[in-house]
Design a binder for these strands. Structure first.
Length: 750
DNA sequence: TAAGAGTGTCTTTTT
DNA sequence: GACACTCTTA
């Protein structure tokens, strides 16, 4: 392939480099993905077997995208066989096949953050520690930081510096909690996110033969977003590449935004030390953005002290100035942004897909959503509450987890009394006690409850254990879908949710269906080798909403997300909202220089997402914790070289008819309606102000109706079950919905 | 033991 | 203003 005609000289040089270590410093928008794609294509063209290439990305989405692009260049078969994924998913896969070597079951559970926090709370209670002083989130953060630096429990307990730190912070027991936590995870056959990396390091350290095997397998190692790797990840990459030394890392120190998670810029400097023969390539030409945007971004990042040599430039047009909008309230900010999007779309004939709204915190999406909905602008939210974090989903998943790994303590606690079977807190406390005293796992006590408890209390527990054993037997024979279907039915969950005829109940029921559909799709995927329940669970533990979203997206829509999740993406027009002190930069990040610089890099990332036009906005007052607070504009606004900025001010501080200056008095969400499912695209339908529900007792099939949230539609079916009538309505915008007439507010139109 | 009311904490970002 | 957790009562 003629790479020189496809790439600029420095890009081509990076692509053609094959042997030995290399580092690509890639400025924002400099065609990094392009280079990585062609670099892999070139390796394949040179005869390297795809199985021998390991490419580690930061998100599943990035991996998927790159695989798709490589597929276009070299064809499907080769692309499919590449080892490509996040650190977490690749090494979870490897740990699964090597689990026995480090004493974990093959079907180990992956605890999510919630599981971890709950476990810490439980430990605090058992150790009789004050959970105000030892906040679970903070304790988990400390444990996580230790693991990411590969500090074992023993090292933690013995290290005088750490002890002094913890004592100075008046939290001397963190080491003990860490010890308990690690213990409990091990007994439960569970790993948290950090363990996936930590235990990989343990595996490679204690089993040189295993390390050797993977060193021979992964002859070429690539790491994307290298500036965001932590020590634990750095070491894994280094160990794997130790033999062949064919390692290529790609990164941009200016875009390092995950220090809070242990990412360490030091890794870039370490890299130069580890490989003196290192070749460095710099990609400095930005192909994405206008000159204005690139220069403005440079003027911001220049305020950071800690940064590497780099000079990003653009040959694109100058482009329009950066607009700054000032609003009186968060609601008005939403309105200004929505109006601006609407006008821009019309005057430039754009698609809503061209627009993105970025914010610092997920909570900010609310005000934006409302304004967009009022203008009928469709939008999608990336991230936020994940499908897998919903209660009903977690419940069913807990059953599945327990089936695959009965020692999974968090799953056990979640469903041992759900649906209700008369096992209360007192009984559970007794079980835990018994487990502790007899040195058994909780499951072992549960499975033999009659030996530990009087018959009357033991009976429901024994029944429960029998159920789980039966599920395990089914899961051993059947594929994930058959097993999950059986469990959902037999556990009584389906029945319980079906009996709940409220609207929320219906939506929970539908969510379970959707999960089962997901399992089905998983099992029917012809390329999937391992179709067991265990494999499925491992898969979903590492998938976030952001990864699955795009596929089911139909129709154009404005994208909304946090700046963190916008990393790596680009949009024609970008709005960065909430440019206020204590919000961006965040209140918790303004105390130290290093933290503030991370915030500034985050701002840099946000700015450089924009191709043509960038708009910044701030509000002088904002609702926080339910009450109004006044805000100052962000210091970052003043850091942009003023020649690139056009300050626009809100015309009037107030708003439309019937609205108070600070909004918010109306527009309260009916609590009958479930919060809009973040999984799907929320449609912009606004009910007219005069909406009045009609009497629906004589509703007929075929009639046209209006719903305050779903818009217009017609009744396709009516059915009455045990006294309550359900209407199946085909809505024009949102498709088919099943509504209970006793709850649904419908206006009959004809 | 279950259900309901009341209270306090919280929001930084993600695998 | 949301949610998890605690307290109260049947």
């Amino acid at each position: 392939m003629d790479y020189l005609s496809l790439l600029n000289p420095s890009q081509a040089a990076a692509v053609m480099q094959i042997d030995g270590p290399c580092m690509i410093i890639a400025g924002a928008g400099s065609g990094k993905t392009r280079v990585l794609t062609y670099r892999i294509a070139n390796l394949l063209e040179q005869g390297v077997d795809p199985f021998n290439i390991l490419a580690l990305t930061f998100t599943n989405k990035a991996a998927k995208e790159m695989r798709a692009r490589i597929e276009k260049v070299v064809g499907g078969a080769a692309a499919k066989n590449l080892w490509m994924g996040t650190f977490h998913s690749i090494f979870a896969r490897i740990l699964r096949s090597e689990a026995d070597k480090i004493g974990f079951p093959r079907s180990f559970t992956i605890y999510d953050t919630q599981d971890s926090k709950t476990l810490i709370s439980q430990i605090l209670k058992e150790l009789e520690l004050d959970d105000k002083l030892y906040k679970p989130g903070m304790v988990l953060g400390r444990i996580s930081a230790a693991k990411n630096k590969l500090i074992s429990v023993q090292q933690y307990l013995n290290d005088p510096v750490i002890r002094q730190d913890d004592e100075a912070a008046l939290r001397p027991k963190i080491g003990v909690i860490y010890q308990q936590y690690a213990n409990r995870c091990f007994k439960a056959g569970a790993m948290d996110f950090d363990d996936l990396l930590y235990q990989t390091n343990v595996l490679f350290k204690d089993h040189p033969d295993v390390l050797n095997k993977y060193q021979n397998l992964f002859r070429f190692v690539m790491v994307d977003e290298y500036q965001d790797t932590n020590y634990s990840q750095y070491l894994i990459a280094r160990k794997l590449a130790a033999k062949e030394r064919n390692i290529c890392v790609v990164g941009d120190d200016a875009q390092s935004i995950y220090a809070f998670r242990g990412a360490d810029i030091q890794n870039i400097l370490n890299f130069e030390k580890d490989y003196p023969e290192l070749q460095v390539f710099k990609l400095e030409q930005n192909y994405r953005s206008t000159k204005t945007i690139v220069k403005a971004a440079n003027s911001v990042i220049k305020n950071n002290q800690a940064q590497l040599r780099k000079d990003v430039f653009s040959d694109n047009e100058e482009g329009p100035l950066i607009e700054v909008l000032k609003a009186a309230s968060d609601n008005e900010e939403g309105k200004l942004v929505a109006n601006s999007i609407f006008e821009d779309k019309m005057s430039h004939h754009l698609s809503y897909d061209d627009f993105a709204i970025l914010y610092r915190t997920n909570a900010q999406s609310r005000a934006m959503e409302e304004s967009l909905r009022k203008l009928n602008i469709r939008y999608k939210i990336v991230g936020g509450l994940s499908f897998y974090q919903r209660k009903e989903i977690k419940d069913l998943v807990a059953y599945l987890r327990l089936t695959v790994n009965p020692n999974d303590e968090q799953a056990l606690r979640r469903v041992i009394n759900y649906p209700k079977r008369g096992i209360g807190d007192t009984t559970i406390a007794k079980l835990i006690n018994a487990a502790e005293e007899s040195n058994h796992t909780i499951w072992e006590v549960v499975a033999n409850a009659d030996q530990f408890l009087p018959t009357r209390t033991a009976n429901p527990i024994v029944d429960f254990a029998e159920k789980i054993k039966a599920y395990t037997a089914v899961a051993a024979k059947e594929d994930a879908f058959e097993a999950a279907k059986f469990i959902a039915k037999n556990s009584g969950m389906i029945e319980e949710l079906y009996a709940d005829k409220s609207i929320e109940g219906l939506s929970r029921y539908e969510n379970i269906q959707e999960l089962l559909n997901g399992v089905k799709a998983y099992t029917e995927d012809p390329e999937r080798e391992d179709k067991t329940l265990g494999a499925f669970l491992q898969d979903i533990a590492l998938v976030t909403d952001a990864d699955t979203k795009d596929a089911q997206q139909e129709g154009e829509a404005v994208t909304m997300m946090t700046i963190h999740s916008a990393k790596g993406l680009e949009f024609r027009n970008v709005y960065i909202v909430g440019m206020e002190e204590n919000l961006f930069p965040s209140q918790m990040m303004i105390t130290s220089r290093a933290d503030l610089e991370e915030e500034r890099r985050l701002f840099y990332v946000a700015i450089t997402r924009a191709e043509k036009k960038l708009t910044l906005s701030y509000a002088t007052s904002r609702y926080q914790w339910g009450n109004l607070r006044s805000c100052e504009k962000s210091r970052f606004l003043d850091e942009i070289d003023p020649q690139f900025v056009d300050f626009k001010f809100a015309a009037t501080p107030s708003a439309g008819p019937g609205e108070s200056p600070f909004g918010h008095v109306f527009e309260r969400r009916s609590n009958l309606l479930p919060t809009p499912a973040r999984k799907t695209v929320a449609k912009g339908y606004t009910p007219p102000a005069d909406f009045q529900p009609s009497d629906t007792s004589n509703l007929q099939t075929g009639q046209r109706v209006e719903h305050p949230k779903f818009g217009f539609g017609h009744v396709t079916k009516l059915e009455t079950v045990s006294g309550s009538t359900k209407a199946i309505i085909e809505f024009e915008e949102v498709g088919e919905k099943t509504l209970l007439l006793s709850f649904a507010k419908l206006r009959v139109l004809g």
